[in-house]
Design a protein around this nucleic acid. Structure first.
Lengths: 250, 250
DNA sequence: ACAGCGCTTTGATTCACATCAAGAAAACGA
DNA sequence: TCGTTTTCTTGATGTGAATCAAAGCGCTGT
């Protein structure tokens, strides 16, 4: 349950140059020289074990992380122990922008699975943003994506009924998979029911019932974490609340 | 219901130099010379009439706005006409960061009252961020604040019961007023019940009942939009879910 | 392979909140 | 100013989802 001392984990040799995710990540649009600068500033391939934390709320060290493999959740928790999961981060996603206002992370980030990340310290990040306009642009796009994602979740939590929320989530996840070159119709959920229910603002039992209901209606089939979408159009119809083509939004 | 053609509104002569809100706004931390650059890039004191829009979703013009007087709400709406209010912006607040990802605003922004704003086009904003490191820093703090605010709202919508939500909101608003040099114990709500209920994810009737309940419990007194906080400690206690000292967070 | 534990599903009951309905109070407009 | 409209409050009723309870299932590790 402690934050992993990142410096103790080993740096692998996988560079942005070869990284299949670079188009989704900070390197996008950077020239070869700029990319070299970036590579020199990051910890490549930091390993995080399942259930370990990338960072804690109020940690004085803060950084931007890019997920290479695995999955991460961020959450906010209250004095009385309740938590709200704010987002799930999959390969290609960036997290850590929450520390911008106070130079401290405002939420916790925990690995849902054994996970690989690249770490860019805030100092280095700031410096690069000053030097590289392309990097600044890409950074701003990423921040915009984060804001959009949160806005979408607000709409979900504030306006939708539980079945719609699940449909919206599955539809988004499917879209994400498609964009990443994976199957849009069959995939594994990276998180447990408990976490998904919390994220969607409902009880675990309710989530389970909604999965069952969608299955009864022959819209999806579920077993454990494997989801197959049987009727995409009806799923999207249920999730009709979604505004944008749902790209970039989990 | 149309977006106001901003260029048609007159530029007043109130400069950042004299602006009482400059410490909350982009100028914070800028030198005199830097401030001059900023001033030359912005439309000072654009007037927006009540119910007019600062921007619409998908507008191809996009900009950052600083509220000088009045109040603005941002909202996301669904094809079937439902909306979710995402935030209220009061004097000293900045809005418009949602356009970062796609060069289009992703939500609507509407004046709740006759409102004065400063407008900084995205182009000028980008340019200034490149030139002025202090401005970049301030921008990032503002973005961080926006992200924190949204995260707090997610916690509110996802985990709290209706009474807690209202208590949290009133407590935040009180704090904001205090920070701005106004009374923390007595203030006017800048929005109608309808909008507040939507923002807090509940029915108008429920919101009204919660106001009544807090009044019966002698925690606050309300008449129309005027709120007086009679027992701050009990209010904060009800809002105990709130984590941070609630600064910067509406 | 088996025991034990956590995760998930299903069922029964309760409750918080939405919805429906109507009246009171402000705000608005002529 | 008055009449109309909108906004807000309060009450009665219904319902979606939470909670309580318990059984099934899949992992874990030894």
């Amino acid at each position: 349950m402690k934050t992993v001392p990142l410096h103790s984990t080993k740096k692998a040799a996988i560079a942005c140059h070869n990284c299949s995710l670079s188009e989704l990540c900070l390197p996008r649009g950077l020239t070869r020289e700029e990319l070299d600068l970036l590579e020199n500033s990051i910890n490549k391939t930091v390993k995080i074990k399942k259930k370990d934390y990338l960072f804690h709320r109020d940690d004085n060290q803060h950084a931007i992380f890019a997920v290479k493999a695995g999955a991460v959740k961020t959450s906010l928790s209250t004095p009385d122990g309740e938590e709200q999961i704010l987002g799930f981060y999959l390969p290609g996603d960036l997290l850590g922008f929450d520390a911008f206002a106070h130079d401290r992370h405002t939420c916790d980030a925990q690995a849902l699975d054994d996970t690989l990340v690249c770490e860019l310290s805030m100092e280095n990040f700031q410096e690069l943003c000053g030097k590289l306009p392309a990097m600044r642009g890409q950074m701003m796009r990423q921040i915009g994506t984060e804001i959009e994602r949160e806005q979408m979740l607000l709409l979900t939590l504030g306006q939708m009924r539980t079945e719609e929320r699940l449909a919206t989530f599955l539809s988004s996840l499917s879209e994400r998979n498609r964009e990443r070159g994976f199957s849009a119709n069959e995939f594994n959920l990276p998180m447990a029911r408990h976490d998904l229910a919390n994220y969607l603002g409902m009880a675990v039992e309710t989530l389970s019932r909604m999965f069952s209901r969608l299955q009864e209606e022959n819209i999806i089939s579920v077993q454990h974490r494997l989801v197959k979408i049987a009727d995409m159009s009806r799923l999207k119809q249920l999730a009709h609340h979604t505004c944008r083509p749902a790209s970039d939004v989990l």
